[in-house]
Design a protein around this nucleic acid. Structure first.
Lengths: 227, 227
DNA sequence: GTTTAATAAATTGTATGCAATTTATTAAAC
DNA sequence: GTTTAATAAATTGCATACAATTTATTAAAC
C-alpha cells in the first residue's frame, strides 16, 4: 500500500524512449535494432532490452524475425488503410467521451498541448512537431477516460508516424495546421457534431496526403548510399 | 523469404496457454503466477516465462507488482464498463466488415466454430464453453480482416472472461444460448442491421447478467479456506 | 494469547556466459 | 570481374548464477 509515486518500470521507460525516437523519425522504418547497441546506449544489459523489444513487437512498432533480430516495422499499405479505418471508428467515440466527461483541468491540458505544438512549429523543430501531433491524439484518448481506447491509441499513433515516414509525399508541410485547435475549440463548446466532423476531416486529411498506392520508400542501402 | 510455416515463437505459445487457462477459469483472477513454477510447468527457464508475463501484462491479463511478481488481473467494475463500451463500439464494425468481406470459407469456419460450441455444451464441459464463447468473437474479428481490430479483440475477450469470473452471479447458466448462431445466420444472409442488432443485444445480455455494483468475488484466502 | 522483532526461506530483478545461428569477409574458381 | 565456397565475426536465443527484495517462520516481549 505505498502511496509513493513508484516510477514506471525501467523496461517500459526504455520502450517509451524508443517509441519517441520512432515517432520523431530518428529511427526510420526497416532499420535494425541491435540489442547490444541499445544495451550500451541505455546502460543496461541485453536482458532488459530484449524485454523492451518484446513489448514493442507486441505493439507492432517493431517486428521480430527469428534469429535475425528486431527491426522497426514497415507497415504495408493495407495495414495503413486498416489503421486509418480503425482510427475513424474510434476517435469520434473519443471526442464524444471527452465532451461528456472532460473537466476544466482536462481542457487546460489540451490547450497546454496546443501551445507546445505551436512552440515547436515556431522553432521549426520538424521532428518535435511530428511527435507532438501524434501525442495530441494520445492525450485526447487519455482524457476520454476509457483505458482500453487509451491503450489502443497509444499504439496506433506511433504506427501512424511510421506510416507517414513511409508513404508521405516527399516535401509536404506535413503539419495539420491548426486543425487540432479547431477540434479542441469544438470540444470546449460542447459541439459534438462539429468536433466529430472536424476529427474525421482531420484524419482524412492525413490519410489523403499519403501515397498509399505508390511503392513505400526504400530502405536505406548503406552500400550504395555514397556510390 | 522462407515460405515454411515457421511455428509461433515459444514465448507467444506460453502466453497463449496461460491465456487459455485464464479464459477457462482454471487460473482465477488475483492468483499469483510464480515464475519458477511456470518455468518447470512449461519446461523452460524463467527468462522465457518472464517475457511471456511481460506480454500478458501488456495485454492487461496479468498485473505486475514491482518485486512482488505477476498476478492474474482483477478488473475493476469501472474497467468492466469501459470494456463493454469498447466492445459495443467495435463489434458492430466487425460485423459490417465480415458481411462485406467474408468468403464462403470464412463462413464455413464460423459454422465450424458453432459446432464446436454446441459439442462442448453437449458434453457439459463448462470451462470449454466459456473459452469457446470468447473465442467466437475473436474468430469473428479475425475474419473481419482488420489486424488492429483483431488484436484488440484478442485482448478484450480474455479480459471479458476474467470479468465474468469476478462479477458473474453465482449460478447463472452463463451460456449465450444460441445467440452466436443467430448472429452468424444474419451475417450469412447479409442482413447488416439485424446482425448488428443481435450483436449489441448479445453484448448487453452478457453485461446485464453481471453484478458490477456488487463487491467483486473475494480472492481465495488459503489460510481460512479450511478454517 | 497477541504483538513485535529477528531470522530464514522463497522469489524477483538483473547481468553474464555460452551455444546456435546469421551475417560479413576472404579466398578460390571460372 | 563475377560467382561460389570456406572461414571468421557478429548477433541472437537461452539458461544460469547471484544480489536485492519480499514473504514466511520462529523467538521474544508484553
Amino acid at each position: 500500500m505505498d502511496a509513493a509515486p513508484t516510477s514506471k518500470p525501467a523496461i517500459e521507460q526504455i520502450a517509451e524512449r524508443i517509441t519517441d525516437a520512432v515517432m520523431e523519425h530518428r529511427l526510420p522504418p526497416g532499420i535494425k535494432l541491435v540489442e547490444e547497441k541499445l544495451a550500451s546506449a541505455f546502460g543496461v544489459s541485453r536482458t532488459k532490452i530484449r524485454q523492451a523489444l518484446t513489448l514493442l513487437a507486441k505493439e507492432g512498432l517493431v517486428t521480430l524475425h527469428a534469429n535475425r533480430g528486431a527491426f522497426v516495422t514497415r507497415p504495408s499499405a493495407a495495414e495503413a488503410r486498416d489503421l486509418f479505418a480503425t482510427r475513424r471508428l474510434v476517435e469520434p467515440e473519443i471526442v464524444r467521451n471527452v465532451i461528456a466527461r472532460a473537466c476544466e483541468h482536462d481542457l487546460a491540458r489540451l490547450r497546454q498541448h496546443l501551445v507546445a505544438e505551436a512552440d515547436a512549429r515556431q522553432e521549426g523543430d520538424r521532428r518535435k512537431i511530428i511527435r507532438l501531433s501524434g501525442q495530441f491524439h494520445m492525450l485526447l484518448a487519455e482524457v476520454s477516460g476509457n483505458k482500453f481506447i487509451e491503450k489502443l491509441m497509444a499504439e496506433l499513433c506511433p504506427l501512424t508516424c511510421l506510416i507517414i515516414a513511409l508513404y508521405d509525399a516527399p516535401q509536404t508541410p506535413a503539419c495539420p495546421e491548426d486543425e487540432h485547435r479547431l477540434i479542441v475549440d469544438a470540444i470546449a463548446a460542447h459541439d459534438e457534431a462539429a468536433a466529430i466532423k472536424l476529427m474525421l476531416h482531420h484524419l482524412k486529411h492525413i490519410e489523403c496526403e499519403l501515397q498509399l498506392d505508390a511503392e513505400p520508400k526504400h530502405e536505406i542501402h548503406w552500400e550504395t548510399l555514397y556510390g
